[in-house]
Amino acid sequence: MSEAAATMAIMAPPEAVQAPSYTAEELARYDGIVQRYTRHVYNIAYRMTGNEADARDLSQEAFLRVYRALRRVQPGAPLESWLYRIVSNLYIDLLRRRPRVRVESLDAPIDTPRGEMVREFPDAAANPEAVFEREHIDGAIQEALGTLSAELRMVVILSDIEGFAYEEIAAMLRVPLGTVKSRLHRARQVLQQRLRPYVDARRRGWQA
């Protein structure tokens, strides 16, 4: 079965999908998918939503869809592409259901007479030593990710956290390669500004 068909099956509303009784073998296959992808799916969902409860709901829903469409999924086929697309789409649904959490995108350039300008942000860490504390860094990165639009966030998570190549990301999100390139660059620029103390600390680390 083609990947597109598999995705169609998986993205179909749950009511339309038959859920037949599975054999032990099929359940084992499902378990294999679960073991292989749960950590990645959860990690992406967590970095997208920024909180455990939403990440859990999103991951659970994604696997429920996999489960319902199990028979339409070719055994042994790589599932990253459409599994992460499901996560992305579910996240967009989540935003739609909860429009109040949408804030103005801070990464959007501001139009000025001299062309577009990107906003600058005050130092995220007032305490210089906190720059080296792992937990502090995680929190700051998560916060900085939260300021990105969903589109930019998804691209930067798939690229820099999950380590996918541009072409893979383009296939997952169904956007042109050039779009991945420009979104990723914009996302990194915003993050770089928001995380300036950490970025500088890291560069000093290279030089030392």
Partner: peptide, 15 residues
């Protein structure tokens, strides 16, 4: 440096 910071994030462990 920004990319490396993100790459260095420990994966969130599923509950």
């Amino acid at each position: 440096a920004t990319r490396d910071l993100l790459a260095g994030l420990p994966p969130a462990e599923p509950p």
